[in-house]
């Protein structure tokens, strides 16, 4: 469904990704784990066209090379949404306005209304805070809003950048239960996480990214059992 081949991204003279290759099948949950600075965020930003990949990189979705699309069309035409690291909710807008804005390019009003109801059903806290300014939300609620917004903006694939960051353990469990529901609705998930144990328990397959290169890949169970992964990412 999404096939990334030889993805290379450079910031000036510094190369962040050294030609990585991976793929995701429809309906899957796939994770990329790695340390801070390994290139996880850059990978997602390259798919979303927030950063431009170097020449020769291929990001193919349904036979289309994403490199040819502007960032907004990746979301509105191809349905690939992105929950950015650090949430980036619009604090000066209300919760409802944040959700409404995420449907900016959608013409199917009835379906949008249904999607909003669904978002409120998996995140009842957002419904309670519907008319509040988003900057008044707690960190966990802001993460819910960021995920809800992404779900409405496009739901073929959801790219998730560190959704566990800054969440208390209980909230984290709730968040991943909600993400599971989103996946069951038919949304393919690509998850990027520093919390490797959490990510591998949630995903079916995983890739290990180190210094801009994929060093290991396989089913989550295999990676969880892998001695190198255990040592480097799971605390021994």
């Amino acid at each position: 469904m999404l096939s990334v081949k030889n993805l290379q991204v450079s910031y000036g003279k510094i190369t962040a990704l050294h030609g990585i290759t991976f793929n995701i099948q429809k309906g899957e949950i796939v994770c990329i784990i790695g340390a801070n600075g390994a290139g996880k965020t850059t990978t997602l930003r390259a798919i979303s066209q927030l950063v431009k990949a170097d020449a020769g990189s291929e990001i193919i979705y349904d036979g289309k090379n994403l490199v040819d699309y502007p960032a907004d069309k990746i979301v509105s035409e191809l349905g690939i949404s992105h929950v950015p690291e650090g949430r980036h909710i619009f604090g000066n807008l209300t919760v409802q306005e944040n959700l409404t804005l995420s449907a900016f390019a959608r013409k199917d009003r009835d379906a949008v209304a249904k999607d909003m109801e669904w978002v409120f059903s998996i995140f009842p806290r957002l419904k309670e805070r519907q008319w509040q300014k988003a900057e008044t939300l707690s960190g966990g609620e802001q993460q819910m809003l960021a995920v809800g917004r992404a779900f409405i903006s496009g739901r073929n694939i959801m790219l998730l950048d560190e959704p566990s960051m800054g969440l208390a353990p209980l909230l984290m469990m709730d968040m991943f239960a909600a993400l599971k529901k989103i996946n069951e609705e038919g949304t393919t998930i690509l998850l990027v996480e520093q919390n490797a144990r959490l990510a591998l328990k949630f995903a079916q397959r995983g890739y290990v990214l180190e210094s801009g290169q994929i060093v290991l890949e396989g089913p989550s169970a295999d990676l969880l059992a892998n001695p190198d992964v255990k040592k480097a990412y799971l605390g021994g």
């Binding site: 502007p70 907004d72 619009f90 604090g91 000066n92 944040n98 959608r106 903006s153």
Partner: peptide, 20 residues
């Protein structure tokens, strides 16, 4: 709404499907 959002956080606007 998009204008207000863009004033708050410019970089993330395209992720809402909004052309900058």
């Amino acid at each position: 709404m998009a204008m207000r959002a863009m004033a708050y956080d410019f970089a993330i606007i395209p992720l809402m499907g909004v052309p900058i």
